[in-house]
Nucleic acid binder design. Structure first.
Lengths: 110, 110
DNA sequence: GGCTTATATTGTAATATTACGATTATTGAA
DNA sequence: TTCAATAATCGTAATATTACAATATAAGCC
């Protein structure tokens, strides 16, 4: 036990959970917001702004990257991280219809 | 170590992370989808449909409830769970602007 | 080559999550 | 009040996450 039973869910459900999981930490929310704000894409700047230790940020960046939400490229001695526009869009198209499910039409039985 | 450092993030960032975390498991996605589909709101039916053991589903329901996304009421010997319309709406208003951040206007430096 | 800067990786401790068997309420019915 | 049905809680094992110090790697510069 202890590991998620992915086999019993649909690919879409697993994909959605994978995306929400990537966003399920305030540091990763902060990183994404910073990248959208476009002040900088440099890894070191992210470390300074977010306020966690460098290895911790590196770990969070790795998770965002493996989820496909960001991509990185080496720029001299530093590394530049950017939103992966295509995958971000895919995620949006997956999550938006879910969030927009209209709860108002439900006959509230609770 | 090991625990998230919530203190260093904004309330909005923590709130967003809390919501995405509640959705960060395929079983919880499946439960929400089932409740929106309105075939039933009965806990036992959820257990049958999702395909995890009853205590596991009960645990997931508890997490969704503590995140405020669902609410439950006792109906005889069973328990009825429903989407919490108000909080679902709050979450949507919090997450949608984030998801809709336009990546297309970014000058992609990676 | 050596030196500096920037980031990734390793190792590890603390904590959290996932899953389920066994058990315990709780409710309604006999 | 005893019984059956339903869901919650307890206990626990397996696994995953979070965080960081220490170290390693890589890229540019002298």
């Amino acid at each position: 036990m202890g590991a998620t039973k992915s086999e019993i869910f649909t690919p879409a459900q697993n994909h959605m959970a994978r995306m929400t999981k990537a966003l399920a930490h305030p540091a990763r929310i902060a990183i994404i917001q910073y990248l959208f704000a476009r002040r900088s894409c440099v890894c070191g700047d992210i470390v300074d702004v977010v306020g966690l230790a460098q290895p911790t940020i590196s770990q969070h960046l790795k998770e965002l990257k493996s989820a496909g939400l960001i991509k990185g490229s080496v720029e001299g001695t530093s590394v530049c991280y950017c939103i992966d526009q295509k995958n971000w869009s895919v995620m949006k198209d997956l999550l938006s219809p879910f969030l927009n499910l209209d709860a108002a039409i439900l006959n509230d039985c609770c």
